[in-house]
Computed example of a mutant assay.
Amino acid sequence: MSLQLLSLSFLAALLLAAVACDLHQRRIPNALVLYGMALGLAFQAFAAAGQGLLQDGSQGVAAALLGGVAGLALFLPFYALRMLGAGDVKLLAMVGVWLGATAVLQVALWTVLAGALLSLGVMLATGSLRTVGRNLRTLFTLASLRCASGATPQGTAATGRLPYGLAIAAGSGVEMARLLLSA
Rank of each mutant, 00 (worst) to 15 (best):
L113Q: 03
G96A: 03
A116R: 01
T141Y: 09
F46E: 10
R137T: 12
L129D: 02
Q25Y: 14
A73Y: 08
E175Q: 12
L129N: 01
Q55I: 13
T102M: 14
M1D: 06
L6C: 04
A18R: 00
Y164T: 03
L16V: 00
V174M: 07
L39W: 15
D88T: 04
F78W: 15
L136V: 15
Y79C: 03
A108T: 06
L74T: 01
L142S: 02
A48N: 02
L66V: 13
L23F: 14
G155T: 11
A38H: 07
P29I: 04
V122T: 10
A48W: 14
D88A: 06
A170F: 07
A70Y: 12
R146C: 01
A63G: 09
T131H: 15
M94S: 09
L124K: 01
R27C: 06
L181I: 11
L81M: 12
L16A: 15
L23K: 04
A93V: 03
R137G: 05
F10T: 03
A48L: 07
A38M: 11
D88C: 06
C147S: 04
F78D: 08
W98M: 13
L84H: 09
G50E: 11
L84R: 04
A70V: 15
A45L: 14
L179N: 08
A148Q: 02
L23Q: 09
G100I: 13
S172D: 08
A170S: 07
R146S: 06
R161V: 06
L14R: 00
T156N: 08
L180S: 05
Y79G: 01
I28V: 10
A143H: 08
A17G: 04
G160Y: 07
L124I: 03
A13M: 00
S58H: 13
M94G: 06
A170K: 00
M176L: 11
T126H: 14
S2F: 15
C147M: 09
G165M: 01
Y79W: 15
R130A: 15
V174R: 03
F78E: 11
G171H: 08
L118S: 03
L166V: 08
L81N: 03
A62R: 07
A143V: 05
A169H: 00
S58M: 14
A64T: 12
A80G: 06
A158V: 00
H24N: 04
T138M: 08
A170I: 11
V107S: 06
S144N: 01
